[in-house]
């Protein structure tokens, strides 16, 4: 005669629970997304989990209005297949600049959705469709945690990179995004601080990484010095050469 199963299940110890594959552990990295695409900047890659932008996840970039967002994303976009959907961009992308850096204009789609409800619906639609890369700029109305959560869930069905640009103030709010970074232009370049990475236990204050800006953006010479003839004949006082700000505004002199 076989033994009957006991009426009450045997108690399970905490150790046994921790051994289960589906138990979440903060720093185990068990549930972290290992699919990434390199940011194109080795220093930034080193500061991110799995050495790159996480794919199929929501990446949040907090910055004040327009910063150097294209400098941040362009190297990754070159390595990503598919389309690049720009949702609610702050201005019109200038096609000459994109052609100069070798981005195929056929890949760029612009979607203008200024209303918050439309923005969320379009973000979810684009992410779920797996168009490739979704770069979204949050509309004027702040997104609630629930709306961000919806966007975040939609990105889990995506196949590519989904980055949402949010205002600098949003850094103080909770967000379900997998990776949250703060971007700020500084004299040396673009300063990136990854202040939240899911599955990454931050023991110290996050160290900012500075991405250099293109050299062509920097003046080779002070503005006055461009006119060599003028400089040679009439050397300016040192104080005035230091900056072009004291140039009289054109048309007003």
């Amino acid at each position: 005669m076989s033994e009957l199963p006991p009426d009450e299940p045997a108690p399970i110890s905490i150790e046994q629970l921790l051994l289960r594959e589906d138990t979440w552990l903060g720093h185990s990295g068990r549930f972290t997304n290992r699919k990434v695409v390199s940011t194109g900047y080795s220093e930034l890659d080193d500061g991110l989990m799995n050495q790159g932008w996480p794919l199929n996840s929501l990446v949040e970039v907090c910055q004040s209005t327009m910063q150097a967002e294209w400098q941040l994303c362009l190297p990754a976009l070159r390595n990503m297949p598919g389309l690049v959907a720009l949702l609610n961009p702050p201005a019109t992308p200038f096609c000459q600049a994109f052609m100069q850096v070798g981005i195929d204009l056929e890949r760029l789609i612009v979607v203008n959705a200024a209303e918050k409800a439309d923005f969320v619906a379009c973000f979810i639609e684009l992410a779920r469709a797996g168009v490739g890369t979704v770069l979204a700029w949050q509309p004027e109305d702040q997104l609630t945690y629930t709306e961000l959560r919806k966007c975040s869930l939609a990105t889990t069905e995506a196949t590519g990179l989904c980055i949402m640009f949010r205002p600098a103030e949003a850094q103080q709010q909770n967000s379900p995004a997998t990776l949250r970074v703060f971007a700020q232009l500084v004299p040396g370049g673009l300063e990136i601080t990854a202040f939240k990475q899911r599955g990454f236990l931050q023991k110290h204050q996050p160290r900012p990484v500075i991405i250099p800006l293109p050299e062509v953006w920097q003046p080779a010479l002070p503005f006055y010095a461009l006119n060599q003839k003028y400089v040679a004949s009439k050397p300016q006082p040192k104080r005035r050469l230091a900056s072009v700000t004291q140039l009289p505004v054109r048309g007003k002199s």
């Binding site: 204009l105 612009v110 979607v111 639609e125 684009l126 168009v131």
Partner: peptide
């Protein structure tokens, strides 16, 4: 991947936002 692969998505976006809101450069 091209735009024709996402015809359904594009159609849904256009239905919501209007034809002029979705464009290429």
């Amino acid at each position: 991947a091209s735009i024709t692969d996402f015809a359904v998505t594009i159609a849904k976006l256009k239905a919501r936002l209007g034809d002029d809101a979705v464009y290429k450069l």
